[in-house]
Design a binder for these strands. Structure first.
Length: 206
DNA sequence: CGCTAGATGAGA
DNA sequence: CTCATCTAGCGA
């Protein structure tokens, strides 16, 4: 018998952000015709985490107050890259940044939006991911648990693959929290490993 | 392959 | 001024 993938429900996102980030690995992300498996995430928390946007941005605190768990939180960084996050509201509140996917279907339109990038380079980073899926500010605030074109599907059960945890990358605060999660052996993460090195080097230089 | 520089805009 | 980034272009 074949197991059916079901949409992740609100309750999934009403837990600890770190648990959500880890459990999102291996789930499918759907955006219209484009589907990919989540292979990299990061958790951010409103308490004890200086890297969380709520620590510096009033608009993010307002967003959190006005949206349910499982809402999409999208914003621009470095003037040109959209970041796709999910609002988490458990006992601890925060966000999960979806950093990388392994394309499964609809990759023709993903490749087109990425300007002809090869598979290994298609969704292997948070900016590439949103570009491949066509995600931008218009998706901000969407309910990912509703029956829309944007959301997540449950991962296979039992889930036997290994998940690696390590420090988050590309940030300047709270660098040591091991809140970055990767599917082991996904083989799509070279670029992000490089990004991690760059960050580490900068840290060493100071 | 590794590494650097520069693009580019919102928020506080 | 700071950023949850990416890519082209350079040198080895």
């Amino acid at each position: 018998m074949r197991e059916e993938s079901l949409r992740l429900e609100r309750g999934f996102f009403e837990r600890d952000p770190v648990v959500c980030a880890r459990d999102l690995i291996g789930c499918k992300m759907i955006c219209g015709r484009s589907v990919g498996r989540v292979i990299e995430t990061e958790a951010y928390a409103t308490l004890g985490d200086a890297a969380c946007h709520t620590a510096r941005r009033a608009s993010t605190r307002a967003f959190l107050a006005n949206h349910p768990a499982g809402s999409a939180y999208v914003y621009l960084t470095y003037g040109m890259h959209w970041m796709f996050n999910v609002l988490i509201k458990g006992d601890v509140e925060g966000f999960v940044l979806v950093r990388a996917l392994e394309a499964e279907s609809g990759s023709d339109e993903m490749v087109a939006r990425r300007g002809g990038a090869v598979a290994r380079n298609l969704c292997s980073g948070p900016g590439k991911l949103t570009q491949a899926l066509g995600i931008n500010l218009s998706h901000n605030g969407l309910d990912l648990c509703a029956a829309g074109s944007l959301g997540f599907l449950t991962r296979a059960s039992p889930f036997t693959e290994r998940i690696h945890a390590g420090p988050r990358i590309g940030i300047s605060a709270a660098k040591t929290l091991p809140w970055r999660f990767l599917l082991e052996g996904a083989g799509v993460l070279k670029t992000d490993c490089n990004a991690g090195k760059v960050v580490a080097k900068r840290a060493n230089a100071q």
